[in-house]
Design a protein around this nucleic acid. Sequence first.
DNA 1: CTGGTCCAAAGGTCCGACCCAAAGTAGCAG
DNA 2: CTGCTACTTTGGGTCGGACCTTTGGACCAG
Lengths: 250, 250
Amino acid sequence: MTADRSAIRLSPMEVPKASDVLANELRERILSGDFPEGTPLPPERELVVQTRMSRTTVREALRVLEVQGLIRIKAGRAGGAFVQQPGEESVANSLELLIRGRQIRLASVHETREAIEPTCARLAAINRMPGDLARLDAADVAIAGSGSLEAFLQANLDWHIGVATAGHNEILTGIMIALSRAIYTVTHNEGFVNDEVRAITVRAHRSVTRAIREKDPDAAVRRMTRHVHAYAAAALAVEERTAITVPPVE
Amino acid sequence: MTADRSAIRLSPMEVPKASDVLANELRERILSGDFPEGTPLPPERELVVQTRMSRTTVREALRVLEVQGLIRIKAGRAGGAFVQQPGEESVANSLELLIRGRQIRLASVHETREAIEPTCARLAAINRMPGDLARLDAADVAIAGSGSLEAFLQANLDWHIGVATAGHNEILTGIMIALSRAIYTVTHNEGFVNDEVRAITVRAHRSVTRAIREKDPDAAVRRMTRHVHAYAAAALAVEERTAITVPPVE
DNA sequence: CTGGTCCAAAGGTCCGACCCAAAGTAGCAG
DNA sequence: CTGCTACTTTGGGTCGGACCTTTGGACCAG
């Protein structure tokens, strides 16, 4: 060991990439609320002269922020990067990646739903605004009159997201959006949505909607819990029936 | 309205960027499980000849995937882009951005927690493995003997994440990690962690841990619900006490 | 008004060169 | 043979500069 001559010791150091440095800097500034939503960042070429980095580097940093939902980039004159606070979308996206990539057991999705939706219903019954009710009613109508499978699933999804939205909790809303998407794609493949399921769903939705309208949190929780649980059980049953061909997992 | 002469209606159309096309293609392939975890993607220069895109474009696409947690990029010889399935981390990150950026009401975080943690506890009581228990015990010991505020918060956090992990539901785990971080940074600023709070926390944790060890889901849910609710109430109280200077919201 | 033309600003793409990091390899001193 | 050094190779990271494409605005002709 040649280094023993000096007592100076250093811990392993991180050498961040230039583009990350810029991205971090901008991210902090945006998150700290320095610039209000919609503020345009300087044009790329301007950032180049300010930071003395190359345009490639600047662009990479901007791209990172765009993926993270912190800015929105428009091309063309009067285009550029505009500050944006991340919304439910970005959460939903990353959750979707997790679910799809990890081949997550469908059971996990349902478990999560069972944890979350009752709370959404409770909050909705407490915080709902007139506009929220209108959206729920619209979804109720749409689902009753839905012909195709797609229409049914879409209306179903709208209602569930509507409930989450009515709760006015952005975290829960984001999670619900992601879960809904996952459920949609899954239920879409299996053909377990028969007339009976539809009828039951419509009834359940209506009763929850009523509880929300009447600002009755306890009823909302109770009914939503029952509904989600039943749905999960039914879906799992179909799952099992369909999965017989698949060799035992684990 | 000038457009009324023609009845033809078109919806806004997407013109994807080249780099997005590549990113989407690769993303689909990765998510569909074509390449197992750790598979190296071709080097950038190789992708250039294969796709006939410029290196800039290729690199941008890779950068996007990296941010989404689908690949990990290493420099140097034998480096490159390696396939990676997104984990809890990426979900936690995007949730953190949402929470920080939107100046989310602390209440939202607590609401979400109250929705999720009881379920985590229930699942943990059902699915826990020996390793999970060991981790919980370690956290219990650490929190009891913690001196500094940081040590206490860290141990607290470890325990809660440990419970989530023991439930073996990756979605819930990801959400919990994110929430924990948020709670950590918040509680860190306020100085509401006095000796009494510590004692209560230690006791609550131990009783939940016991329920998990004894595979008693109902008790686990009950105790966790009480604990989280109490914690949220206490935090909110402090919040209000501290926030007197702030003008009334809404 | 309607449509066409042109211009300027800004992002999007490409090229080619060079820098830096990591891992292997050859060769040399002891 | 051992161990160190120096070189080479393979890969990502950065740079600068050219050119393409999109978009909004201004101006002009019908």
